[in-house]
Design a protein around this nucleic acid. Structure first.
Lengths: 224, 224
DNA sequence: CGAATGGTATTTGTATACAATAAGCTATCG
DNA sequence: CGATAGCTTATTGTATACAAATACCATTCG
């Protein structure tokens, strides 16, 4: 992470997420290089990565622009995510080890603690939520699937909506995780997949509903 | 395509597919640069692309290696492909235009001609097969889905098996395409998805069966 | 004899200069 | 007045030199 291209990547990515670089605006390699304090070479590297992750888009003559994301994009990303996470859950049900299951239980318990505290500890929730889902992916044992899922969870549209939560949604997430665990205990891949689909789709609709009364992006509920 | 980095990409990719660069072997940027007749800069560019496409893998200290693919990888890729193509078919059923449908029919007819000829015209079959599937993807109208599908169809494991065919499998493909078209006519997304899943999985098993009696990769049946 | 250490060679990462290409602008012609 | 050809500027692409990191090997020390 000390390599210049990684710093450039992180810097540009966070500038996009924060809105410092406006959606749709052109970005020039040299300007970014100055902003990041590196030369164009690592910036080009970073831009290529951000392009495959759909943070950046290039026109036919190779100019780069900050991608702009619509609500359709969000639904699209969530639909794919639901499908992929369900698939992961199904595969995981057939492959997961005792140890992995134990670790999943641990993270779901931690996540419950974060909610049950007098004031919900959202960062703690998010962290354990992330680890819970990561363990499913690990148990699913498909590198390709993992890289695809990364593509739809690390989308700007998703990340920018994953900031605020209401308690009700956090609790539901916890219970849905519990149900996934029971499905795993029973090695019931179809059950696990169905719960996971519902889990992701609920998260999407929680967002969409909040969004319909609040057009500002990034102020919505979305925990999966 | 006249840019040096594109030439490097094509060159390296074809060297990997042809086996000229052996699976698992390390590849050095400078050596590739000489082979491609360009400098290291565009080679690095090409390697990054090939890495995201899983043609090339890098170890923890950034050395690059030609990826090696197992039968498990093949099944994995096909499983994901079946899921994604089914999803595409379902979306397409709800969105496809008259014109797109007409073009799909045309390509399926051409594909039939290629089989019915006294000697099957495999390249013609493949071309129209590709265009048929591309139209579904176009009608599905999801850029993300398209890029993911590319990731599993452009895999070395898949490409190296997509060379030889038997007539029986070609005919089945044609009929399955016909059924997809009928499902589209009826705007029945679930039907279209089911047919597509079967279509891809049949292709996989045709390969797997052939492979079990012929361990040499690249000499098998697989048309989807 | 095995492990740790240091030096050397190999390989990748970065900066920079220059080349190629595309965009924008101005002047000219229909 | 509108379109377009040609020039100018802006931007990306490539080559190359050098810096940094890593691997490889030999040697020494426990």
């Amino acid at each position: 992470m000390s390599r210049a291209s990684d710093r450039a990547y992180d810097h540009i990515r966070s500038m996009i997420l924060s809105g410092e670089l406006q959606s749709g605006s052109q970005i020039r390699e040299e300007a970014l290089a100055e902003l990041c304090g590196v030369s164009r070479t690592p910036v080009r590297d970073a831009l290529r990565r951000l392009e495959t992750e759909m943070f950046v888009r290039r026109n036919e003559s190779q100019r780069s622009f900050v991608a702009d994301w619509s609500l359709d994009d969000l639904e699209d990303a969530f639909q794919l995510r639901a499908m992929l996470e369900a698939h992961a859950a199904k595969r995981a049900a057939a492959r997961i080890s005792r140890d992995q299951l134990a670790r999943m239980r641990f993270h779901n318990a931690q996540l419950k603690q974060a909610i049950d505290a007098s004031r919900p500890d959202v960062p703690k929730f998010l962290d354990n939520n992330r680890l819970f889902h990561a363990l499913i992916l690990e148990a699913a044992a498909s590198e390709r699937l993992a890289s695809m899922l990364l593509q739809v969870t690390e989308q700007p549209v998703v990340l920018r909506t994953a900031r605020q939560y209401d308690l009700e949604n956090l609790r539901r997430s916890h219970h849905e995780h519990d149900e996934v665990l029971i499905a795993f205990d029973n090695r019931d891949g179809d059950w696990a997949a169905a719960v996971m689909t519902a889990h992701i789709r609920r998260a999407f609709h929680a967002y969409a509903e909040a969004h319909s009364t609040n057009t500002e992006i990034g102020k919505s509920n979305m925990a999966a």
